[in-house]
Amino acid sequence: MSHTAHIRSHRKPRRSASTIAMRAGVAGGVLSTLAVAGASGSAVAAEPVTQTLELPTLTADLAAQVAQSADVTQQAAASYELQAERDAAAAKAAKQAKADLAEAKKKAAEEKKKAEEAARKAAAERASRNAERATLSASADTGSSEGSGSVSSSSSSSSSSSSSSATGSAAAVIAFVQAQVGDAYVSGGTGPNSWDCSGLVQAAFKQVNIDLPRVSQAQSTAGTQVGLDNLQPGDILYWGGAGSAYHVGVYVGDGMFVGAQNSSTGVVQAPLSYDPPSGAVRVL
């Protein structure tokens, strides 16, 4: 027995049977309540299992998102590929443009070289023509006084007397052809700085409103046939047969003629002995 058992306040009261039974009943009720609550809680806890029906919807959304992401990735890849193709095309175009520019510069240099060469050649030909004209002029003085070839002394005398009397249309024709002496000969040329033989004759007579045919063959029959011993300034000289002439010129008097001879000489004034004509026609 405890040493404090005799003290009244330290004694534990004894519990009655009714109190114990009541407490047991309360405990049992509590346990029953807990059991019911537990069962109810289990039922409530089980309810979310029925919500798994929503999972397929979530799965479909996820699949759509994945598909959309794949489309975006594919579009990005296609865009990159297109950009790469454009870059490659631009690089190729730039390379081709560079090559074209180089080729153009090369051609320009070649053309410039050809032009310079042509200019030098033209200058040399002009110098040659000037020298030849000087020679022809000296020959003309001799030919006028002495005569040669098919031109007789009487015809030279007749020509000398008639040249000083050339007036009107004949004088205009002669002045025109003499003004072209030194110009270049070009086949098919009709002026103003290059001629062929019939182009020069046609242009000369056009100055006096006379329309001649374009070619030598037709010009050789365009007027009245005259003898070479009866020439007058302004007569058309021809080489070859009448109607089949291959060359024409203009008689300017004093036993001289002007004609676009060839590419080497150009337009010259020369004595008839330089290249004796076959015949002549008069249209003035």
Rank of each mutant, 00 (worst) to 15 (best):
A131Q: 15
A131S: 15
A131I: 04
E132N: 08
E132R: 08
R133G: 12
A134S: 14
A134H: 11
T135F: 10
T135Y: 11
T135A: 15
T135L: 14
L136T: 09
L136G: 11
L136H: 10
S137H: 08
S137Q: 12
A138E: 15
S139L: 11
S139A: 13
A140W: 08
D141Q: 13
D141M: 09
D141S: 14
D141L: 11
T142M: 11
G143W: 14
G143E: 14
G143Y: 14
G143S: 13
G143D: 15
S144M: 10
S145D: 14
S145F: 03
E146M: 11
G147S: 13
G147V: 12
G147Y: 09
G147P: 00
G147Q: 02
S148H: 12
S148C: 14
S148E: 14
G149Q: 13
G149S: 15
S150W: 10
S150I: 10
S150G: 15
V151W: 09
V151H: 09
V151I: 15
V151S: 13
S152I: 08
S153Y: 01
S154Y: 05
S154I: 06
S154A: 13
S154P: 02
S155P: 07
S155Q: 11
S156V: 04
S156E: 03
S157P: 03
S157T: 07
S157W: 03
S158H: 10
S158V: 04
S159D: 12
S159W: 02
S159K: 03
S159P: 06
S160K: 05
S161Y: 04
S162F: 02
S163K: 10
S163R: 12
S164V: 11
S164N: 13
A166S: 13
A166Y: 03
A166V: 11
A166Q: 02
A166R: 04
A166L: 02
T167K: 15
G168C: 09
G168A: 08
S169F: 00
S169I: 04
A170N: 09
A170V: 09
A170I: 06
A171S: 15
A171W: 02
A171F: 00
A171E: 10
A171D: 06
A172V: 11
V173Q: 02
V173L: 01
V173A: 04
A175H: 04
A175F: 01
F176I: 05
F176H: 11
F176W: 14
V177L: 09
Q178G: 01
Q180W: 03
Q180G: 02
V181R: 02
V181Q: 07
V181F: 01
G182K: 07
G182T: 10
G182A: 07
G182S: 08
D183Q: 05
D183T: 03
A184D: 10
A184I: 00
A184Y: 10
A184P: 05
Y185H: 05
V186F: 04
S187N: 01
S187H: 04
G188V: 02
G189D: 00
G189V: 08
T190K: 02
T190I: 06
G191L: 06
G191R: 09
G191K: 11
P192W: 01
N193C: 00
N193A: 10
S194V: 01
S194D: 07
W195G: 05
W195T: 07
D196Q: 04
D196N: 03
D196T: 05
